[in-house]
Every structure is written in C-alpha cells, then in structure tokens.
Amino acid sequence: MIGSDEKDFIRGGFKADIRSDGRACNDSRPLSLSLGDLQPCSGSARCTLGSTDVIVGVKAELGAPLPDSPDCGGLHITVECSPCAGPTSQGRAGEALSFELAKCLERALNAHPSGRGSALDLRALSIVSGRTCWVLCIDALVLACDGSLLDALSIAVRAALQNTRIPLVEVGATEDPDEEPELELDDDPANAKQVDVSRVPIIVTVCQMDDAFVVDPTAREEEAAEQACHIAVMPTGNVCGMFRGSGAAVTPFALQEMMSLAQKRGPLLLQAVGKSIASAAMSMET
C-alpha cells in the first residue's frame, strides 16, 4: 500500500530524472551473481538486483519426451515465492504471483512446443528419439522481492543454465528396435556437456509514467507508475516476448518507446551479466 502523496513524489522523481535512490530513469541497480550455490543441482545461480533476491536451480533428469515432439527434451519451470519475500507473496496472493512468474518465464524460454524457434535448443536434449530425453527442471525461489522480479529471475535462469552440466550418456546398441536400449551415464564432469544459452532471453521491466519511461523499478516505483511491461529481449536485441503487468491501458506510442528502450537495455544488461558470471566463476575457482 502506498499513499497518493508518496505516489506524487515518486512520479515527480521520474519526471525530474532523479529517482528515490538517486538513479536516473534508465539506470539499474547494482547486480551481483553467484554460481553453483546449490550442490545437488546440475546448475544453479543466485541473483541479487538491488534488494531483490532470487535463487534458481536447474536439475537435469531422465524422462520420456512428449508424444507430439519425440525428438525434443523437456522443460519444466516452477517459481516459488518465499512468504517472507514481501507482503505480496504471502498466502494465496503468493501462489498466484508464483504461477504468473512461472508462466512468463516459460513463455519467454519456450516459444513453440515443437522446440523450433525456442530460446533453448530442446532437440539437443534428446537421447533416444521417442523414448528417452533429458528434462530440465528449472526451479526458482524468490527470497526477497523489491520490484523487477522478472528481470532478476530471467538473469538467474540464464546464469543457472550456463552453469548447468549435463552428463554424457552412451546408448547401448540393441538388435531389436523395440527393445529398451541400455543407457550408460558418464559421471566424469569433464565429459559433461553444456547447455547452449546463446539465444536465452532476458526480461526487461519498463514502467511508464506520462512520458517518462523507467527501467529496473523498485516495488514502490512499480506501484506508483501508471503501468509496467515486461519485455523479453534476445542477446541480439530482438524482442521475443512481452507481458503486461497490471495498470492502465498502453498507447501504441508508449509501447513502441518501451520496446525500443528494452532493446537498448537488454544487450547492456547481458554484458553486465556476462561480467558478473566471469567474476563469479573466478571466485569459484579460488
């Protein structure tokens, strides 16, 4: 809950290009990433964006592909909001928010059920066509929520996927094609293969207030703004998904403006993420 006077002050800040924490409208908060925190997972990452804090674990499991896409691996995304993350994630409201976040992430990652054109190459996860494949279970936990949740989640998902190592599987030869082939897992981490994340998008949240457009809003700013859009951007700068938060209707002009802002910001954010991943990997080695 936020009063109308506070809203006016925050909105005035958008117009003056000085926000509550001294940032300009197109500045983002300090980002930090750590990789491999969750030992039992195939890959994990924790991302803090200001005081928003999320942790993502990726687990690779053996499973059966869906009947209509026998050559593709599977992808499961769940998001859970810790009840202590904030007032919006307590009780039933938290469940609805978790579901919404999971759907957004899933749609950003998985453009088409056949695996074509999707951000992750699901065909690389296939082991035996129509029989066995890798299923990537991406589980995210929101630890603290202070706005721009989808930004933090998408960065953490990308980093966790980059951190994921999938064991090499050798398929034993069988004489009868109907027979279940024998699978041999190679435990050596040196032989494990990586997931190709070159097309995995990140989501940029843009808030609008009159003619001011604000990136990386805090929870208070999200509440004060007229409306918010979450735009999924590929590393190339192409938009590959868009989700609307609650709020007023968007004008076509505002939408254009938001998209071009997201297209500019996406690659910049990715550079910052790349740097963070590199430094996190360095600190892991030492």
Partner: peptide, 19 residues
Amino acid sequence: APASAAEREAVSKAANAVR
C-alpha cells in the same frame, strides 16, 4: 511547491545513506 532537482538529489543521497 514540488521538490526541485537539487532537493531530490539531496533526499536521494540521504536515503541511500540510510539504506
């Protein structure tokens, strides 16, 4: 009157110090 840019700058500085 609404806060001027300089005033906002000062408020955000103090706010960040508190944070």
